[in-house]
Design a protein around this nucleic acid. Structure first.
Lengths: 141, 141
DNA sequence: GTATTGCTTTACGTTGACGTCAACGTCAAC
DNA sequence: GTTGACGTTGACGTCAACGTAAAGCAATAC
């Protein structure tokens, strides 16, 4: 069978959506080592496809990796990060499931807002301290 | 000698300022173990007075402990926390010292602002996710 | 061919942040 | 004077989050 003469736009978009990456590519892109990526897989934070023994990463895996690293920047432990990002994929068919998810969301939000308060007070202390330093500097001038 | 008949306000205030605490008191107050408090001392984050072998904690130590724990909530490693809170006590006599401190402040601020951006995006994603969950819930009703 | 490159697994090492346990000092209360 | 309560110093244990080294497969490069 000959290949199709022309590839319609839809198919191109599909190709683009279904682009895959190697472990080296995702690691380099996110600025981590392949060991780190595999560690996250061991903990069940990402589950790349396997072709034979080789790991194949899809857009979904990159999304999750982004969430993981942002969680890390925020200082969350990996286990907690797992419960958070799993939440986004949790089944929400039954009412009880949805209510559980909503309760979890509330907890997460409270946690994040506490962190933001911490950051804001740290920032304002820093600003005040900078002001005092500038006063000292002016006196030296 | 009889004790003084009346204690003037100034002396009361001084007493209050110079109140001290035991390791058990500060640990309980901040919700950590005494082991944790001693660990921070080993790393040079706090340096309580010694009376004989016993540690005596002053207001200054409690302030630093508060800064340490806030840093921890924000996910900073203890070594980094040490450089941060040491900054507040750093000598600022010479111009070069002041300029160094100001540069450090800028670094800290950039870091904290990155964290705040991360938190804000996490929060808005959470809000959007909650909205979708509530739509699902309404459909079930 | 073989040599290099890129991926794989297995497995042990390391660092940070404490926990835990042993062995002992000290001081007020009984 | 001994019994607690609270303090002390080591020293080793543990858990998370990886690092690192060893050894092997599989495809391309020469």
């Amino acid at each position: 069978m000959p290949p199709p003469a022309a590839v319609p736009t839809r198919a191109v978009a599909a190709d683009e959506r279904e682009r895959t990456w190697s472990i080296a590519e995702v690691a380099a892109e996110f600025g981590v080592t392949h060991r780190t990526v595999r560690h996250y897989e061991e903990l069940g934070l990402i589950t790349p496809e396997r072709r034979g023994t080789t790991r194949v990463y899809h857009r979904r895996d990159r999304t999750r990796l982004g969430l993981i690293l942002r969680g890390k920047r925020l200082g969350f432990p990996l286990e907690e990060i797992r419960t958070i990002i799993d939440l986004y994929d949790a089944p929400r068919g039954r009412r009880s499931q949805l209510e559980y998810v909503l309760a979890q969301i509330d907890e997460r939000r409270a946690d994040l807002e506490q962190r933001r308060r911490d950051i804001d007070s740290a920032l304002s202390e820093l600003t005040e301290f900078e002001r005092r330093c500038r006063v000292d500097l002016d006196r030296l001038a």
